[in-house]
Design a protein around this nucleic acid. Structure first.
Length: 289
DNA sequence: CACACGTGGTT
DNA sequence: TAACCAAGTGT
């Protein structure tokens, strides 16, 4: 089926008033918002995004600060490597793109922390290019409406991009709203747990509804590992203390964050490897400057 | 391709 | 309460 004739009018009527959809929102703002939205819910992103753009209105502003400032300002958004990547992005844009966010998908893909989704989201939403934007929401909408499946398949660019590309109208504004509308539909209506088919603009044409909404049959998606007691948690605790300190923390001080030395050392080593922490037992540990 | 990677709200 | 879920990327 073709989703755009139904999705585009629905989106224009029902789109949330989000910061990155306001007129005059800059490509840099779009880039920052997309980094923050990688695996972090909209509601938690909005206030932090406003702080970032007020403090760093352009890539050059962020690039002029040390990475530690970015990691601190990232606060508790999660996956703090994104803060480091975003800072590195700002440096690369300043040095290699005259301080302007590139519109070319391949140029975007070459930047740190930008993958298939983010590159096309920036090209489509910041620059109005007709490129397929496929995130987990879009894959779920396509899986149900087009393929008749209850759950989306794992991300696969070879499959996802041509499938969405075929859904994009020629008109640029319609193409942009098809991308944004499919995401919005997946976020608000065609949701993972309890889809609201009663209010869905695609319901009458949805392949999954037409099949009687069959259960997912294939193998279940891998369940997320437990956070309590994980290396992730220990990394988070170490970083929390480093963010809060103006001076390097000694190995002794870090012992307080986690009792088990083996796991604590493993977490610290991985943070050092990731570049989220610098220093040593002698000079102390701190955020990268 | 499977797995690691934060954090907090919802069911 | 444990499990699930949230606009992914890098290895």
């Amino acid at each position: 089926m073709t989703i755009s004739p139904l999705v585009v009018p629905w989106f224009r009527e029902n789109a949330r008033d989000l910061p990155w959809r306001r007129p005059g929102f800059t490509p840099w703002g779009t880039l920052v918002s997309e980094f923050m939205l990688q695996q972090t819910p909209v509601a938690r992103v909005i206030p932090r995004l406003a702080e970032w753009l007020e403090r760093w209105p352009t890539p050059a502003d962020l690039a002029s600060c040390p990475p530690s400032d970015a990691v601190r300002a990232w606060d508790r958004l999660g996956y703090p490597r994104r803060a480091l990547n975003l800072h590195a992005c700002a440096v690369a844009i300043t040095e290699h793109h005259s301080g302007e966010v590139p519109s070319d998908v391949d140029a975007l893909l070459a930047l740190p922390g930008i993958g298939d989704y983010t590159a096309r989201a920036i090209a489509a939403f910041a620059f109005g290019l007709r490129v397929p934007v496929v995130d987990t929401n879009v894959r779920r909408v396509l899986a149900r409406a087009v393929e008749g499946l209850a759950e989306p398949w794992a991300p696969n660019a070879r499959r996802d991009l041509p499938l969405m590309e075929a859904q994009l109208p020629v008109d640029l504004q319609d193409a942009r709203d098809t991308n944004a509308g499919a995401m919005e539909l997946g976020a608000l209506v065609c949701v993972a747990r309890a889809p609201r088919c009663d209010i869905c603009p695609l319901a009458d044409a949805c392949a999954w509804v037409l099949r009687g909404r069959p259960e997912h049959d294939g193998p279940k998606a891998r369940t997320q590992k437990k956070y309590e007691g994980s290396d992730r948690q220990v990394r988070g605790l170490i970083l929390r203390d480093l963010r809060a300190s103006d001076i390097p923390l000694t190995a002794t001080e870090l012992e307080a964050v986690w009792p088990e030395a083996v796991q604590r050392d493993r977490a610290l080593a991985s943070l050092l490897r990731d570049g989220l922490v610098t220093g040593s037992g002698d000079e102390g540990y701190k955020l990268p400057e």
